[in-house]
Design a protein around this nucleic acid. Structure first.
Length: 428
DNA sequence: TCTGGGGTCCTAGGACCC
DNA sequence: TCTGGGGTCCTAGGACCC
């Protein structure tokens, strides 16, 4: 029998903003941008929620519903800072802690009764410590599984603590909407409704085999969840083991859609720089780079390519992404969003390579490190790949537009298709 | 009143290898 | 010529979460 806590900060972004501007307290506040901007609500105060404003809602919709709301830009650095403070408190409380996102965490409190007393007492103590350290409210759910603890903390909001006694899990879950189960979103909810399943209790009455047939692996996990078990996906991972990121990405939605190649390329260059910088900060090199492209009609494509050798260099990222863009863009079509995504880490171990390539690589590494220091000092706009590089790339493609790897019938013949050769760029 | 940005996990088809 | 199966990598897309 285990004891898990799920701790969730109340209206986190809004509450942090209130610390910086106490006049916001008690008022309808929307965090995420200005009322007339493209974008969605990141967080809404409880006063704003009374008008039907909630997160993920378009800002303009929020304005329609609550014109008197105060619209505030988000400050990710502030939220990271407070998230870190929360984490420090939690670490001092239990060694088995996982931040599940910027504003929520799981703790394994199994066997801590001698230290903290019964779970409710421990939770009150923790709640006080969080309040002391951050001046923020949180809610805590306690249960024998992480899944039930998470659902419980939601029920405890705002500023509450709730404990589901061992053995009472099914009874607690039964009357809740299936949508309350983490992992059940709009689509799954609709699919379940179509089967007449509206409450978790309805779900629990279906047998595992049926749900597996109908929804695959996910259906089986769902059956377990209906009984309150930690089953499937992210609930199977161990608490307290912090693996690094599996992917790093940046994307940008234009204020006004554009088909201007200059603007598109400079945006791709900026996003490539941001991704490269984060890779270097994490000491990671990516093998797979992916472009994301969304048109005005919201249709979205992603196009990926895996490199022969992993990279953390802005220029190599940009060159690849730029190629992907031009090979896949419907020429002239207006673009709403661009994204650059990196994944597929490779150990830093240097392969045997042409000396010249390696040297160039080293040189670029030093240049990039210097650029990062400049940005630290003078801000993100201080250093840029800028137009000079873009000009160079343009020239090259005009000279040699046809020789793109992986195209044409060449791969099909009698030869064993080896990994594409590294481009040695002999015309330098 | 259109729909952000940063992630994770899952599925599915095709290539390729044994 | 009509004939496998398993494993892994790659790519594209989609559901979901905060």
């Amino acid at each position: 029998m285990r004891t898990y806590f799920h701790l969730d900060m109340d209206a986190f972004f809004v509450s942090v903003e209130e610390l910086y501007d106490p006049t916001l307290k008690g008022k309808p506040v929307v965090v995420g941008g200005q009322a007339d901007q493209r974008g969605v609500v990141s967080a809404a105060s409880y006063a704003a929620r009374e008008f039907g404003v909630h997160s993920a809602m378009p800002l303009r919709t929020a304005y329609q519903r609550c014109p008197q709301a105060i619209f505030v830009d988000g400050h990710p650095e502030r939220y990271r800072e407070y998230s870190h403070r929360v984490y420090e408190v939690l670490q001092g409380f239990s060694p088995v802690v996982s931040m599940a996102s910027i504003d929520e965490a799981y703790l394994d409190l199994t066997g801590t009764e001698r230290l903290y007393g019964p779970p409710l007492r421990a939770a009150h103590l923790l709640h006080e410590r969080i309040k002391e350290a951050t001046n923020l409210n949180c809610s805590i759910g306690i249960a024998t599984s992480r899944l039930v603890a998470k659902i419980t903390s939601d029920q405890a909001k705002p500023n509450g603590i709730m404990w589901i006694l061992p053995g009472q899990e099914a009874a607690f879950l039964a009357p809740l909407d299936v949508r309350k189960v983490p992992g059940v979103g709009k689509v799954t909810e609709q699919n379940l409704h179509a089967l007449g399943i509206r409450k978790v209790g309805d779900l629990a009455r279906f047998d595992d085999g049926f749900l597996e047939k109908r929804f695959g692996k996910w259906g089986l996990a769902l059956a377990g969840k209906a009984r309150g078990q930690d089953a499937g996906g992210w609930f199977d991972t161990e608490i307290g083991v912090d693996e690094g990121p599996k992917s790093i990405s940046h994307e940008h939605t234009f204020n006004e859609d554009t088909a201007e190649v200059e603007r598109i390329e400079s945006t791709l260059a900026r996003l490539s720089e941001m991704v490269g910088r984060r890779l270097r900060e994490h000491g990671l090199q990516a093998r797979t780079l992916q472009l994301k492209l969304r048109y005005t009609d919201f249709s979205t494509i992603t196009r990926a390519h895996s490199l022969g050798r992993a990279t953390d260099l802005d220029t190599e990222i940009f060159e690849e992404i730029r190629g992907l863009f031009h090979r896949n863009w419907k020429r002239g079509a207006t673009v709403r969003l661009l994204g650059v995504h990196a994944a597929g880490w490779e150990e830093g171990g240097e392969q045997m390579d042409l000396l010249g390539v390696e040297e160039r690589h080293e040189k670029w590494k030093q240049t990039m490190a210097a650029a990062d220091r400049m940005r630290d000092k003078f801000g993100e706009g201080a250093v840029s790949l800028g137009t000079s590089l873009r000009g160079k790339f343009r020239e090259r493609t005009h000279e040699n537009p046809a020789s793109l790897p992986g195209k044409g019938p060449a791969a099909g013949g009698g030869k064993k298709a080896n990994r594409p050769q590294m481009n040695t760029d002999q015309h330098g």
